[in-house]
Nucleic acid binder design. Structure first.
Length: 281
DNA sequence: CTTTACGCCTGACGGC
DNA sequence: TGCCGTCAGGCGTAAA
């Protein structure tokens, strides 16, 4: 197998969440909720027992995304959905057979149902009647990777004096959102930065490269999601498992596609990290 | 303040 | 073949 054609990871990172948003929103926006059923409320936090009463009859406005949270704007509040480690959303018809772990279903008029499937139940379904940006879970999030605020100077200034690994730094949602374990390894590889290097010892120029690569790689993955065959209307809407070119993630022992040295794996901040010790310093 | 460890959960996988 | 231990991982939270 060539070095740069990898299998996919099974975790919804930001590109998968964005792809889910783009797949689901045109099917549901503007429709009114006709029924809500919660088959298993035991997610990361309990699904609000009042969810059917809260959502019933309301019209869905826009579907937005902040970090990896999906925000369904209704007339009287916002449904906050997080896919956790194994969550996926599908839009189906009411007759569509349930799959295992289809925990929450929101039926809309017009015959479409939004189903949340989440085997590991690390996901979230919450309701807020306040602006979701002020919700405790979202209030302290850093900039989006595509926002201008996510810049080299921002990373440089914020990281001064920090001794923790740069990989942990860019995975910290208070620094920047949406950089999960896979894309952290990948973007650091592209930027030539060793993942364990203290964040405070990365130069402005290298943070410029890193910010660029984070945007590039997330953008590529979103593009890939848009072009990958995925159908949110039928049963094959498993999100997030589209192929993406992973150059180091999951490839310990394989040859670096740049210098052919064997790639390494090391646990940094309780997470598997993949890198090339020759290319990344 | 920064940094680190933990636990939530199930499916996949390896060893015996 | 089948059982069982281990691992994976986002991310909030507690603790250092």
């Amino acid at each position: 197998m060539p070095c740069c054609s990898a299998g996919a990871a099974a975790v919804p990172e930001l590109p998968e969440v964005e792809t889910t948003r783009r797949g689901v929103s045109p099917l549901l926006e503007g429709r009114r909720v006709s029924a809500v059923s919660v088959r298993d409320a035991r997610l990361r936090r309990p699904v609000p027992p009042a969810l059917p009463a809260l959502l019933g009859g309301q019209r869905l406005g826009r579907v937005r995304r902040r970090a990896k949270y999906l925000l369904f704007d209704f007339e009287r509040g916002t449904l906050i959905v997080h896919l956790g480690m194994s969550g996926s959303l599908r839009v189906v018809t009411p007759e569509t057979p349930l799959l295992p772990h289809d925990h929450v279903e929101i039926a809309f008029d017009g015959g479409r149902c939004l189903r949340l499937r989440d085997p590991r139940r690390f996901g979230l379904v919450l309701w807020t009647d306040a602006p979701p940006e002020s919700h405790a879970l979202l209030a302290h999030l850093g900039p989006e990777p595509f926002a201008e605020a996510f810049s080299a100077s921002y990373l440089y200034a914020l990281s001064r004096g920090r001794r923790g690994a740069v990989k942990n730094f860019i995975m910290d949602a208070r620094v920047v959102v949406g950089v999960g374990n896979i894309y952290a390894s990948e973007s650091l590889f592209r930027a030539g930065i060793h993942p364990a290097r203290p964040a405070g010892r990365v130069s402005l120029a290298r943070y410029a490269a890193l910010a660029g690569h984070v945007r590039e790689i997330l953008g590529e993955a979103i593009e890939a999601g848009g072009t990958t065959l995925r159908d949110f209307v039928r049963n094959d809407g498993e999100p997030g498992y589209f192929r993406h070119n992973l150059k180091v993630y999951g490839r310990a022992g394989e040859a670096c596609c740049n210098c052919h040295a064997p790639l390494r794996m090391r646990v940094i901040g309780q997470r598997s990290s993949f890198f090339c010790a020759a290319c990344q310093r």
